[in-house]
Design a protein around this nucleic acid. Structure first.
Lengths: 124, 124
DNA sequence: TCCTTATATGCATATTGCTGCATCTATGCA
DNA sequence: TGCATAGATGCAGCAATATGCATATAAGGA
């Protein structure tokens, strides 16, 4: 029961849903998630690791990158249903489609986005 | 998206999961839920109405009773998947099975349980 | 009309979660 | 060995949630 509640909690958030949406498309590194969703690095990292803790994601390290993907084989059956629910519930959703589109156009190695974020984020 | 997050939030709690489990069995009034789960009246009432707000439940009034049931027809498709996930995730769960068993043996009209709760709850 | 019962809700408090900021760690490269 | 970059994390503030207690509301019956 605890685990199930944990799974629901893991998805009970706007940003986390958007992240699942991206990972439905393909494996992503933290920096892609932060760029595509236009969120801070710590936010992206934390949400990803919380989804990982709940058992939804698989983590693969490659050099500097942490590559997260949906752990479709590893996750419990009821969790797959939750992911399906997200898929279905997001069908036709503008934000979700836009995010996926931006992901397709994203490059993993961009210009120094850390600095970019630092300046762009002034005053939010 | 907001609604979906709301749905996940609604189930991201131990007690609410247990309530869904009861309602999978049959329609329940508030007092049955509080008795079977051994929780306070306000807790039962609030959780039920939050599940109702999220769109999972149907409400029928009968005299003094508020009768809540799963709104299987009315709820969105992705919400049905969430309920299925709960069903599956609870399979074999001891607490869940015990709750259902207690529900089968419960009477809607018990002795004055309000007073009973008041005394039994002293010091929790 | 008053009393009892079933439910809902206002208020206060405790807990939990989200987020930004700064910093730390780890890896790759010159 | 030193620097830059990707990611993780401690800390603090803020918001949302859970919950108990007391009380309000509403229906039924005497």
């Amino acid at each position: 029961m605890r685990d199930m509640v944990k799974a629901f909690k893991a998805l009970a958030d706007d940003t986390k849903i958007r992240i699942i949406n991206l990972l439905l498309e393909r494996e992503c590194c933290v920096c892609e998630v932060m760029q595509v969703l236009d969120i801070s690095q710590s936010k992206a990292s934390r949400h990803l690791s919380s989804l990982y803790d709940a058992g939804f994601l698989r983590l693969r390290k490659d050099g500097l990158w942490s590559l997260y993907s949906l752990d479709k084989e590893g996750m419990r059956d009821y969790m797959s249903l939750l992911v399906e629910a997200v898929t279905g519930g997001l069908r036709g959703n503008k934000v979700a489609e836009q995010d996926r589109e931006r992901l397709r156009n994203a490059e993993r190695l961009g210009p120094s986005y850390v600095e970019r974020m630092r300046t762009e984020n002034k005053g939010r």
